[in-house]
Amino acid sequence: MRSVHGLRRILSGARRLSLTACLLAAAACTATTPATDALRRDGLGDGTPRRAELTEVPFHAQTDYHCGPAALATVLQDAGIAATPDGIADAVFTPGRKGSLQTDMQTGARRQGAMTLPVHSIAEALRQVDQGRPVLVLQNLALEMAPQWHYAVLVGYDLDDGTVVLRSGQDKRRITDMGTFEHTWRRSGFWGFVLADPSAPPPAFATVSDWIGEAAGLERASRPERAEAAYRTALKTWPDAWQPWVAFANLRFQEGNLDSAEANLREARNRAPDNWIVLNNLAYTLLKNGKPRAALPIAEKAVAMADATQAEHAVADARATLQEIKDTLTDTSTAS
């Protein structure tokens, strides 16, 4: 019995292995250029033209290993921010690595007051070019096993010719086969971004969370005035969203302006009456603003709503706020 069972196990193991091999082979077969093929065949949709080029985007020839600063200065200048490759090199270049880390490219942009919105597909990248935004991309020009990382800026495409135009290295206008571009960009996991001006309307692909998240990054980069501009833009762009109001309230709370924080949170609550974050923050603001009695029922509802999300940290946070309100009320009643 045992040996039969063992044989069966080996056979089923082999079958599983061959199935795995088949699937891996299928995955290997897809190592072509599906995005390029689909785009050249079907176009970009939504009436987006089959070719576009941003001829006004400036060019900085890179020196030595400085493709990162050159590419970032290119998109920053295009966004109207006076930055030069040399001027931002200290912020984005790591001499010991002879290169620029991806995160430093993003923080470097933020420290100049610009927002970075990730673009992760060729279709979206081409659409951004059509809408006037150059796309900073990270390519691996060599092989996975021996990478040669390179930052470039996508400024044009032509679906009929099957080419893209890049500001790259020493070339102001490097024309690259679109399939080759797909391969070299894929090797970085399609890592790229466009810059956004906090005061200008967001690109269509950005969600309210993308936008607010980037704006919070501006706060981290010590550009609170740019963050506030971005929150204001969010209010206009997504008038029904609760997130921008909470972000505003957080800014006001940090400044110690509790009345304004409270007013902003009431606006948030009008839009999302059952959101535990809104309720928790409103309750906490009321507590700190000397209104623990008003805070109590709101904190109780926050706990109930946090429970419904089934996220442990949410429940713990909301409970902690409720507890502090209860403690405050107990202290007050004992004192009086």
């Binding site: 706060e219 997130q243 909470v246 972000a247 928790n280 923050n281 906490y284 949410a314 309100i325």
Partner: peptide
């Protein structure tokens, strides 16, 4: 946990 405002970054994670 401690009683506090839920920060903007945490808000983003949740709403995303």
């Amino acid at each position: 946990a401690q009683a506090a405002m839920v920060g903007t970054e945490k808000l983003v994670t949740q709403s995303r």
